[in-house]
Design a protein around this nucleic acid. Sequence first.
DNA 1: ATGCAACTGACAGATCGCTATCATTAGAGG
DNA 2: CCTCTAATGATAGCGATCTGTCAGTTGCAT
Lengths: 138, 138
Amino acid sequence: MPHPIRRNTRQKQAIRDAFIEADRPLSPEEALSAAQRHYETLGIATVYRNIKSLLAEGWLDPVSLPGQSTRYEVAGKAHHHHFHCRKCGRMFELGGCASTVLPKPPRGFQVAGHELMLYGNCARCAGSSSGVRRRASR
Amino acid sequence: MPHPIRRNTRQKQAIRDAFIEADRPLSPEEALSAAQRHYETLGIATVYRNIKSLLAEGWLDPVSLPGQSTRYEVAGKAHHHHFHCRKCGRMFELGGCASTVLPKPPRGFQVAGHELMLYGNCARCAGSSSGVRRRASR
DNA sequence: ATGCAACTGACAGATCGCTATCATTAGAGG
DNA sequence: CCTCTAATGATAGCGATCTGTCAGTTGCAT
């Protein structure tokens, strides 16, 4: 049996909603906090289990970034890259991809893909040098 | 005293040599194996300690890549990017940087830097579909 | 050559990200 | 409404990475 019966639990829906609303890659911990706004007693184990099953279903895509634990975003988006805020640690999506101009690898190397990360301060952090916080979305 | 006396031990020199000879980013474990060719009884704790101090001295730069533990390379090189072999897991340096064409971040975002990773198979792994191994440099 | 403290190696232990276990809860087909 | 069992929440445990401890070693100033 490749696919056991899948139940549509409130927890799983809360997790899906969290990813849809965030519209940026979330770590399991971020997904937990976000989904807990929909289902308060949600546990971290359930988040890991559902991320796993949403990956298997192809509903989520993994987004790994240096030095951090893997994050996940809703699958099916066009090729894009990410921005990582060094201050708040959140990750954002960027528009297009400059993949036309990639460095040339040495002879014999086969390039299968690429990943571009921009680093810096997000709008909220860049503007909050003295602590101007708009919303606590964390 | 910001700088206690630094001794130039054989172990530290072996670690420096390992990075110089490798000419690519090494993980602590890779650095251990490589440096043990210069100093057999080297321990992993010493590698971590010296990587830390070489970072503080500015002799090493950290190179983090998604999903892997941080690697390190000799500092002071020109801006460049990296290639990660999906087969053998080793990391290589690439030539130029196409930084002229970066995706534009949303309004208010401050870009401080970028990191580009190419993925695929390195020359050795791409050519060894049936196991043509040249040298065991691991 | 001598002495001392920086350094080392071995390994215990902290930390992190994730998985396994298990009693309990709750989808969903009948 | 009942039943069956997938799914959950709590938490113990695991592997990987890195740090702390400490007795013993060794670079280096004298």
